[in-house]
Amino acid sequence: MNIASFFSLFLRRKFLRYLCSFIVVLLIVFLIPRLMPGDPVINLVGEDVILTQSVIAELHANYGLDKPLYEQFLTYCSHLSRLDLGYSYHMHAQVLDLLISRVGWTLLYVGIAVILGSILGIIIGAFSGWRSETLLAKFFSGLALMISSTPPYLLGLFFLVIFVYHLGWFPFKGLYDTFTITSIAHHIALPVIVLTLFYASRNLLIMRGTTITEKNLLYPQFAKALGITDSEILRRHVRRNAVIPLITLFALDFGFLISGALFIEIVFSLNGMGSLIYDAIQLRDYPILTSSFLIISLLVIIANIIADIIILMVDPRARED
Results as ranks from 00 to 15, higher is better:
L160I: 08
V161E: 10
V161R: 06
F163D: 03
V164G: 09
H166K: 13
H166L: 12
L167N: 00
P171E: 01
P171H: 07
P171Y: 02
G174V: 04
G174T: 10
L175F: 14
L175M: 15
D177N: 15
D177L: 09
T178F: 08
T180P: 14
T180W: 06
I181P: 00
S183W: 03
A185N: 06
A189M: 06
P191S: 01
P191I: 00
V194S: 00
V194P: 08
L195H: 01
L197G: 05
L197C: 14
F198T: 07
Y199A: 01
R202K: 10
N203F: 05
N203G: 13
L205T: 05
L205G: 05
M207S: 12
G209T: 10
T211H: 05
T211A: 14
T213F: 06
T213L: 06
K215S: 09
K215C: 11
K215Q: 13
N216G: 03
N216Y: 13
N216T: 06
L217M: 13
L217D: 08
L218I: 04
L218C: 01
Y219C: 12
P220M: 14
P220Q: 04
Q221A: 10
F222K: 05
F222E: 10
A223F: 09
G227S: 07
G227C: 13
I228F: 03
I228R: 00
I228Y: 08
S231A: 15
E232N: 14
I233P: 06
L234H: 08
R235V: 10
R235C: 07
R235Q: 14
H237W: 10
V238A: 12
R239N: 12
R239E: 14
V243C: 11
I244Y: 03
P245I: 15
L246V: 08
L246Q: 12
L246D: 08
I247V: 15
T248L: 10
L249Q: 05
L249R: 09
F250I: 05
L252D: 00
L252V: 12
F254K: 00
G255E: 02
G255W: 05
F256Q: 06
L257W: 09
L257H: 00
I264Q: 05
I264S: 01
I264A: 04
E265Y: 09
I266G: 11
F268Y: 11
F268M: 02
F268A: 05
S269N: 12
N271D: 12
N271Y: 07
G272K: 05
M273I: 15
G274C: 06
S275Y: 08
S275A: 11
S275M: 14
I277L: 15
Y278M: 11
A280I: 03
Q282C: 02
Q282K: 13
R284Q: 08
P287T: 04
L289D: 05
T290K: 01
S292N: 04
F293H: 02
F293A: 08
I295Y: 11
L298N: 01
L299I: 15
L299N: 04
V300I: 09
I301H: 02
A303S: 11
N304P: 00
N304I: 00
N304D: 04
I305D: 07
